[in-house]
Design a protein around this nucleic acid. Structure first.
Length: 472
RNA sequence: GCCCCCAUCGUCUAGUGGCCUAGGACACCACCCUUUCAAGGUGGCGGCACGGGUUCGAAUCCCGUUGGGGGUGCCA
C-alpha cells in the first residue's frame, strides 16, 4: 500500500461506462496524481445480476481510453467488493455487539404499513428496544444516535443533517447479505481510503456512512460531492433516456482527449481559459490545476453540440499523419489508402467526428465505370440554368485537351471556359461538382478531381452531359 | 409528504463587497474571406429568478419566496 491520499472509484459493472462516471473518475484521477496518492478501482460486484468478467474488462478499457491507465503507478486495482464479504459480516456483527445495531423482524411491507398508520415518514424504530436475536428474515438496522451529523464536504462546505430525520437504516438484509451503505463503508475502511469523491446523488447517503465510519471506530474520509450531469430536461443523465455510454462516443469517432477536455469543463474551468479565450487545455494542465474547491455546485447539462465543437477542434489540431492514420480506420477495407491520403488534408477541417469520413470521400472510391448517382435536388439546382449543359460540354473538351492533370490546371481550364459564359467560379463549379461527385457539397473540387484522375472525371462528365441532353 | 442540494446569457462557466455600464466558451445571427461545404476573421444578440434586509456600496453576505434537482429500497 502506498503512502499519500487514497482516492477510489467504485463503479458497478453494467456493460457500459457512463459519461458521468467518466467525469468523476477523471476528478479522482487528477487529484490522486497531483497529490502523489493512489487511484483505487473497486468494482462493486456484489449484486449477482451484475457480475460478468467482461464487464470488468470493459470498465478497465474505458478508463484506459480516457487516460486512466492501469499501468500507471498511481493506479491500484481492480479490486472487487466481493473480496471483502467477510469483513462486511464481521463489521455488522461488531455493530450489533456494540449495541449500534439491532435486529428487526418487520418486513418492508409491514414497515410501510406502520408508517402509514403512524403518519411517519419511514421506519419508526419499532424494534429498537425489543432485544431481538439474529434470525432468518430479520434485518439488522443501525441505531441512529440523537443529535446531528455534520458532513464536511470539499466541494460544498458544511452540510448538516438532523439525525431525527434519518431512519434506522438497514445494514444486513433478511438473508444476511450486506446492503450498499455498509459494504461501501467497510470496503473503504479496509482499503484505507482517505478521500471519497463521487456524484452529488450520494450526498444524502453521506451522513449515514459517516456515522458508520465513526461507529466502526474510524475517522471518516474527506468527502467531495460533485454535481450531477443532466439532460436537456434537467434530469440526471440516465441510461434509458440518454446517450451516456462512453463506448458509443468512442465508436462514433470522438477523440479521447476531446472527451476528457469537455468533461472537465462541466462544473469547472480549465486554467487560462479566460485569458486565452479558449477552454482547450491539456490533461497535464488540468491535472495540475484541478481543485474540488473550485467545482461548481449546480448540475451541468451534457451538451452534445459543445462536445462536437471540442472534437472538431481536436481533429483540426492533429498532425496530418496522425489524422490519416485515425481516419483510415473508418474506411472500408477495399478503399485505396494512398488515394485517401491524397484527399485527407482537405477534409480534416470539415469533420466533427471520424464516423463522417467515408460519406465525405466515397465518390473517390466508386468502382471504375460505375454510374454516378446524382442527388436529385443537387442536380436540379446545378443543371437548372440554361448554360449548364453547354458549359459542361466545353469543360469536357478542355479537360480532354489538358496537358497536366493537376488541381491548378483543372481549375484554370474551368476558369477559361466559364469566362466565355461570364460566370463566377462559385456558380460554374456546380455542374462539374454534381456531375463528378453526385452532390452539391463536398471537399474542394479541383483537388478532388486531381485525385479522381482524368479518365474517370471525363467519363462522369460525359455521362452527366448525356443525361442533361436527354432532359433537353 | 419528509430530508438535502442548487439558482449569472439558450448552454457550460468567470466572478468570493467596490476593478462589473457582469468577462469568456459553445450555440445562434450578420458581414468578410472563399471553389461548394467547412475552417478562419470581425461584429452582434443575449444573463445576475423574485422580494426583503445588512452596508457608504451587493451578482457577491443574511432571511424569505419561487423555481429546479437529488434522496427518501431488505438497488448501487
Amino acid at each position: 500500500m502506498t503512502t499519500g491520499p487514497r482516492f477510489r472509484f467504485a463503479p458497478s459493472p453494467t456493460g457500459s461506462f457512463h459519461v458521468g462516471g467518466a467525469r468523476t473518475a477523471l476528478h479522482n484521477w487528477a487529484l490522486a496524481r497531483r497529490l502523489g496518492g493512489t487511484f483505487v478501482l473497486r468494482i462493486e460486484d456484489t449484486d449477482e445480476a451484475r457480475n460478468r468478467p467482461e464487464w470488468t474488462q470493459g470498465i478497465i478499457d474505458a478508463l484506459a481510453w480516457i487516460g486512466i491507465s492501469a499501468d500507471d503507478p498511481h493506479f491500484e486495482g481492480p479490486h472487487f467488493q466481493s473480496e471483502f464479504a467477510d469483513a462486511h459480516v464481521e463489521a455488522a456483527r461488531r455493530l450489533y455487539e456494540q449495541g449500534d445495531a439491532y435486529y428487526c423482524d418487520l418486513t418492508g411491507e409491514q414497515v410501510q404499513q406502520r408508517a402509514k398508520e403512524l403518519g411517519a415518514s419511514g421506519y419508526d424504530g419499532y424494534s429498537r428496544d425489543r432485544g431481538l436475536e439474529p434470525g432468518p428474515g430479520r434485518v439488522l438496522r443501525f441505531r441512529v444516535p440523537e443529535g446531528a451529523t455534520v458532513v464536511h464536504d470539499l466541494v460544498r462546505g458544511e452540510v448538516s443533517f438532523d439525525n431525527s430525520t434519518i431512519e434506522d437504516f438497514v445494514l444486513l438484509r433478511g438473508n444476511g447479505t450486506p446492503v450498499f451503505l455498509l459494504a461501501n463503508v467497510v470496503d473503504d475502511i479496509e482499503m484505507g481510503i482517505t478521500h471519497v469523491v463521487r456524484a452529488e446523488e450520494h450526498l444524502p447517503n453521506t451522513p449515514k456512512q459517516q456515522m458508520l465510519w465513526e461507529a466502526l471506530g474510524h475517522e471518516p474520509p474527506q468527502w467531495g460531492h460533485v454535481p450531477v450531469l443532466v439532460n436537456e430536461q434537467r434530469k440526471k443523465l440516465s441510461k434509458r433516456r440518454d446517450k451516456v455510454a462512453l463506448e458509443q462516443y468512442r465508436a462514433e469517432g470522438y477523440l479521447a482527449d476531446a472527451m476528457v477536455n469537455y468533461l472537465m469543463t462541466l462544473g469547472w474551468t480549465p486554467p487560462g481559459a479566460e485569458e486565452s479565450g479558449s477552454e482547450i487545455a491539456s490533461w497535464a494542465e488540468m491535472e495540475a490545476a484541478f481543485r474540488l474547491h473550485d467545482v461548481t455546485h449546480s448540475p451541468a447539462f451534457f451538451d452534445l453540440k459543445k462536445l462536437a465543437a471540442f472534437n472538431g477542434d481536436y481533429i483540426r489540431a492533429m498532425p496530418i499523419e496522425e489524422f490519416v492514420a485515425r481516419a483510415v480506420e473508418e474506411l472500408p477495407a477495399e478503399w485505396d489508402r494512398e488515394r485517401f491520403a491524397a484527399i485527407a488534408p482537405h477534409i480534416q477541417q470539415r469533420l466533427v467526428v471520424f464516423s463522417e469520413v467515408p460519406a465525405l470521400v466515397d465518390f473517390l472510391f466508386w468502382p471504375e465505370g460505375a454510374p454516378v448517382v446524382h442527388d436529385e435536388a443537387s442536380w436540379a439546382k446545378a443543371f437548372g440554368p440554361q448554360w449548364a449543359a453547354p458549359l459542361l460540354g466545353d469543360v469536357i473538351d478542355a479537360y480532354a485537351a489538358l496537358e497536366d492533370w493537376t488541381a491548378d490546371a483543372v481549375k484554370g481550364a474551368l476558369e477559361d471556359v466559364m469566362a466565355r459564359y461570364e460566370l463566377k467560379l462559385g456558380k460554374a463549379q456546380a455542374p462539374v461538382r454534381v456531375a463528378t461527385t453526385g452532390r452539391s457539397v463536398g471537399p474542394p473540387l479541383f483537388e478532388s478531381l486531381e485525385v479522381l484522375g482524368r479518365d474517370e472525371t471525363l467519363r462522369r462528365l460525359r455521362a452527366a452531359r448525356e443525361r442533361a441532353d436527354r432532359a433537353g
